[in-house]
Design a protein around this nucleic acid. Structure first.
Lengths: 193, 193
DNA sequence: GCTAATATGGAACGATCACTCCATTTTGGG
DNA sequence: CCCAAAATGGAGTGATCGTTCCATATTAGC
């Protein structure tokens, strides 16, 4: 759509405005008007560059999620602790509000199949990362056990994010770092149950 | 507001319709029109009985949350396993959709102080229950450790609920029942960290 | 510097929403 | 049976939303 230099520059300004509004006002208050006002741009310009409001929002969120990757090349050097710390960074770092928006989308997913599919993919990727790291740290354990423990770990981190959402004084990092990154005991419970 | 028999009956019909629409269509699609159409009632009748749409929705949600209580009189006889099972029932039982709506509200809470306060109270009550049960089961452990473990347990359950939201094939009950209800190892990690 | 492609702002559109207003009917205590 | 209070349906209100349309201005290849 954008072919002239001015157009590409405007596109960047709009994306920056979208990030700013999302961070400061949350998903619900991120209206087209709030974005275009912030960017100092008319609605016509916006729709000359984006197919829909959703497109701009997704572009920001995708970038935010990808940005918190401790090992972008997937070299297999990251530990489960690295991954927990990356998650803590995602939730408490500079763009913390985006993690809440991400969560908000996850909760509305059941209503929207498209969103549900995107969330499922992102979640699976994250669980796979934990799974791989845990396998490296505990090569002796059964793979099914490790996979399950990875699910439980990511779920706990997600749940702590929810908790943090309505109680800003909650010490997310402390709780996150106290989670169990050793699947051994989960293994014990599986045999028992 | 309602003083005649017909009015009270209409009130019940509206609440039943609200529950039905919430369950079948989710929070976002629960408009005033969808409620009144389902109840076979005009908007005027609705506002003769309820102050706002929110009032009806909250009445349904409060009931749903209260209904999944294993020990309503708080006699202190419930175990942590009872509480986990009650949570499983809340998420996978007949009114399962309500747990997703509950979660959806939790995620939008940061935007709305009133909702945030309600959610914080409900969450605290749940954590306290787990805390009390765990303390009964492990009277020897430090209270701070048990409190922290209760937080982690409820967070994990919440996270698994999110997971289930966008992947209906997820086996919530299995994962929930494999969570660690023994704070001992958490205690170990606290000393270490 | 000509010109077609692109960019721009903002009025206008149509849909949706929660809620109000009110003429009319129904209720039930005395 | 009376009649004030309560109940009722639904048209109407005003606000907000994403999106479209279009006249005008700017860009950049030639």
């Amino acid at each position: 759509m954008a072919r002239y230099r001015v157009g590409l520059a405007t596109r960047e300004r709009i994306l920056a405005a979208t990030l700013a509004v999302l961070s400061e006002q949350g998903l619900e208050s991120t209206t087209l008007k709030s974005i275009t006002d912030r960017a100092g741009v008319g609605a016509g310009s916006f729709y000359n560059l984006f197919a829909s409001k959703e497109e701009a929002v997704w572009e920001i969120l995708s970038n935010a999620i990808a940005a918190v990757d401790p090992d972008p090349q997937a070299l297999g050097s990251e530990t489960s602790t690295d991954l927990v710390n990356a998650f803590v960074q995602f939730v408490t770092g500079d763009d913390a509000v985006l993690s809440r928006i991400y969560l908000q989308l996850a909760s509305t997913a059941p209503t929207d199949d498209d969103i549900a599919a995107r969330m499922a993919r992102a979640q699976q990727r994250r669980v796979d990362r934990f799974h791989a790291a845990l396998s490296r740290e505990h090569p002796d354990l059964d793979d099914g056990v490790v996979a399950l423990h990875a699910e439980l770990l990511v779920a706990a981190l997600t749940g702590l994010t929810v908790r943090q959402g309505y109680d800003p004084s909650f010490d997310f990092a402390r709780h996150a770092r106290l989670l169990d990154t050793d699947p051994s005991r989960t293994a014990g419970r599986m045999e028992q149950g």
